[in-house]
Design a protein around this nucleic acid. Structure first.
Length: 689
DNA sequence: AATTAGTAAATTTTT
DNA sequence: TTTACTAATT
């Protein structure tokens, strides 16, 4: 696997283990022995490097690699760490157990299936599945006609579940609370009936399991050393898991930055950093505040902004890299103008010899990306959009996987509903309703109702035929799929998709040019990802269940790793965390976008988190940083006046920040320069092509 | 007449 | 990718 953001200056291919290359606090963190350790690592302070070195140091001092557990927040981070460990510690580095909290929880649940109260082949529901379930329940309970947003209902349910509430408290008594109150027990009952768990259940159940004597002993003695990256993003449940796994020795090292906590909406609690010393008695605390990434002006601006947050560990990043160029704050007239400005600047950077991999456009919401995609496309500047839609969440991919899921676990009615009429086989919404009612009445569920479709009253004949066909295909293929071992699964799945006519269905569905081909490509990629998966597992064990779990927990665009070099990067602020670029455009820095509307509206909204998000975005930049905002933006088709983000007022005054207005005559010099650059660039391009 | 299939609008961040 | 509306089909 190649690193996505290879930069020789920061991530050498082979890293030599040399303590002299570390600064004093980094060295202390690496050498610290025994008890709990909290490393407060500011943005760009060499955090990951410190963790890698620490692991390498532990191995060198005789800790068996397989008794070291490194927990990261994303699969991507785990993969990157694995690679760097390999380069610094060789074969032993590869034996270190690196995983996310969620995949660790799955490992625990699979090993302790009984204690967890689960059956083999349980499914993991992602947010889309959760939403489908809530929507379905809303229909059943007839709250649908009140037109509630299922996502908000789900949010309330998940919150209660995380807090292990027996029922949802009625507080304000609004429609959402009432709906959530009704649906909460049903949601949980349905998951149990489907032999399914959602993301939160993974952690909650793992916690329950480790609360019982047997498993507790087994797991708390399994690792000698624990390391947690991005500790500020851990939830209370993850903290509990960590405490159990740490056992009595408590050799725990956590690394994080409270200023970069941006996942509170998903249950993370930055307080975990503040309370670390209470949770782990005798903890040592080390602060890494020397920044090796950004220029002085960028750091000064970022420090000045984050200072306004309360309840943080006071610290200010410093650097000896010099002031650099001022931060540019640019007022544009509208999103078109903003995109034009950004792309013109990018042209100019490229003309000056900057490389595309070192340029990023960051935004708050995914919807903002489109106009930049268009503008870059017009100028023929290669780009990539990170995160937009994860591979395993694309419709055609989910459809294909749903077939495999149903083969594994026919009780999963969310997966079953997804495929029941895809490709169309005459079972429309009304027929599904009837079948579901029949399944409910018999108490044996939707799948058995499908099997007995002929006996279901009022079902149109073509629906009966369709049901028989679906049941036939699944029942013929399921036993083989479930038993399939390495070298068999991908072939069986490919045949199944063929037999179902999934490829034809995908190919026939779309009218946008090229889209159908892309979808077909995605579908074929499922088979290829199965092949890849087969190569990565041991022989002679059934692997379908393993594959489905890994698909549920992986967000990576598999197979799209190649030819991503030489492109400008477009992504959300959330997905930018942990990355860095020489040149960063942070766009749409406006009220209602950053801070986002919802956090301003919500009484419980956390303005601090929005500010941290802004801070994270700023600190991605190594040399140049542009902050842009627009004066009008279309909202529901109407042009709406916009105000610059309040965070822009928190920036320092003076030479470190340069404010400009795109339609201001004073900016003419700038635009003339831009025009000049444009033609210069054009000539350069023509010269090459 | 009922049901299914196709079309158009709009969506915060994501393990 | 869901929802609401319309056209087409049994």
């Amino acid at each position: 696997m190649k690193p996505r953001f290879a930069d020789p200056a920061v991530r050498p291919q082979t890293e030599r283990f040399d303590l002299a290359t570390l600064n004093e606090p980094q060295r202390q963190a690496v050498l610290h022995e025994g008890g709990p350790l909290l490393v407060l690592a500011g943005a760009g302070s060499g955090k990951t490097r410190t963790i890698i070195y620490r692991i390498a140091r532990l191995i060198r001092d005789g800790v068996p690699a397989q008794r070291i557990l490194g927990v990261t927040f994303t699969n991507k981070a785990a993969a990157e760490m694995r690679e760097r460990l390999w380069s610094i510690a060789g074969g032993d580095g590869a034996k270190v157990r690196l995983s996310t909290f969620h995949s660790l929880a799955v490992a625990i649940l699979k090993e302790e299936l009984k204690a967890a109260g689960l059956k083999r082949g349980f499914c993991i529901y992602d947010t889309g599945d959760q939403l489908s379930l809530v929507r379905e329940l809303m229909r059943q309970v007839r709250v649908a006609d009140r037109r509630l947003d299922a996502a908000r209902v789900l949010d309330l349910i998940l919150r209660a579940k995380r807090e292990r509430k027996a029922e949802i408290a009625i507080d304000t008594g609004d429609d959402y609370e009432l709906a959530a109150f009704d649906l909460y027990p049903r949601y949980r009952a349905q998951l149990a009936a489907f032999n399914a768990v959602d993301f939160d259940d993974l952690l909650l159940l793992a916690e329950d399991v480790l609360d019982t004597p047997g498993p507790r002993e087994r797991w708390s003695s399994r690792f000698d050393e624990l390391l947690v990256d991005e500790y500020q993003d851990t939830s209370p449940d993850q903290l509990k898991l960590l405490k159990i796994l740490a056992g009595s020795e408590k050799r725990v090292c956590v690394v994080g930055d409270d200023d970069q906590s941006i996942y509170a909406w998903r249950g993370a609690d930055a307080k975990n950093i503040l309370i670390f010393s209470n949770q782990f008695k005798g903890a040592r605390e080390i602060v890494l505040d020397q920044n090796y990434r950004s220029t002085g002006f960028i750091l000064a601006a970022a420090n000045q902004v984050i200072k306004n947050n309360s309840g943080r560990k006071p610290k200010a990043l410093w650097s000896d890299a010099g002031d650099g160029e001022p931060v540019d704050v640019v007022a544009c007239t509208d999103p078109n103008d903003e995109a034009a400005f950004v792309v013109a600047q990018i042209q100019r950077l490229l003309a000056d010899g900057e490389v595309k991999d070192e340029i990023a456009v960051l935004y708050r919401a995914n919807v903002q990306s489109r106009i930049f995609e268009e503008e870059l496309g017009v100028e023929r500047i290669p780009f990539r959009v990170v995160g937009g839609q994860a591979f395993f969440e694309r419709k055609e991919v989910k459809d294909a996987l749903a077939y495999l899921t149903v083969a594994m676990n026919p009780r999963d009615e969310i997966a079953l509903r997804r495929i029941i009429n895809t490709p169309p086989r005459g079972i429309g919404p009304t027929s599904v309703l009837r079948l579901a009612a029949a399944g409910e009445a018999s108490g044996r569920g939707l799948w058995s109702a499908l099997k007995e479709a002929a006996t279901v009253s009022d079902l149109p004949p073509q629906a009966v035929v369709g049901a028989a066909q679906l049941v036939g295909v699944v029942e013929r293929s399921a036993p083989g799929l479930r038993r399939a071992k390495r070298g068999e699964l991908s072939h069986l799945a490919g045949t199944l998709f063929q037999e179902l006519g999934l490829r034809d269905h995908v190919l026939a569905a779309d009218d946008a040019p090229g889209l159908a081909e892309r979808r077909l490509e995605n579908l074929d990629e499922v088979v290829r990802s199965l092949e890849r998966f087969e190569r990565s597992v041991a022989a002679d064990v059934p692997i379908l269940s393993e594959y489905l779990t890994s698909a549920a927990l992986t967000n990576a665009d598999e197979g799209e790793e190649e030819d991503q070099a030489g492109r400008v990067t477009l992504m959300t602020l959330h997905s930018a965390k942990g990355l860095e670029f020489r040149n960063v455009f942070l766009v749409g820095v406006e009220e209602e976008l950053l801070p986002h509307q919802r956090t301003v509206d919500d009484a419980a909204g956390d303005l601090g988190e929005e500010r941290r998000l802004f801070y994270v975005g700023m600190t991605r930049a190594r040399r140049r940083l542009w902050l842009t905002h627009v004066k009008t933006r279309l909202k529901h088709g109407k042009p709406t006046p916009r105000t610059p983000s309040r965070f822009l007022q928190e920036l320092p005054e003076g030479e470190g920040v340069r404010r400009r207005n795109r339609d201001d005559p004073k900016g003419d010099a700038e635009s003339e320069k831009l025009a000049g650059d444009f033609f210069r660039n054009l000539r350069a391009n023509l010269g090459i092509t």
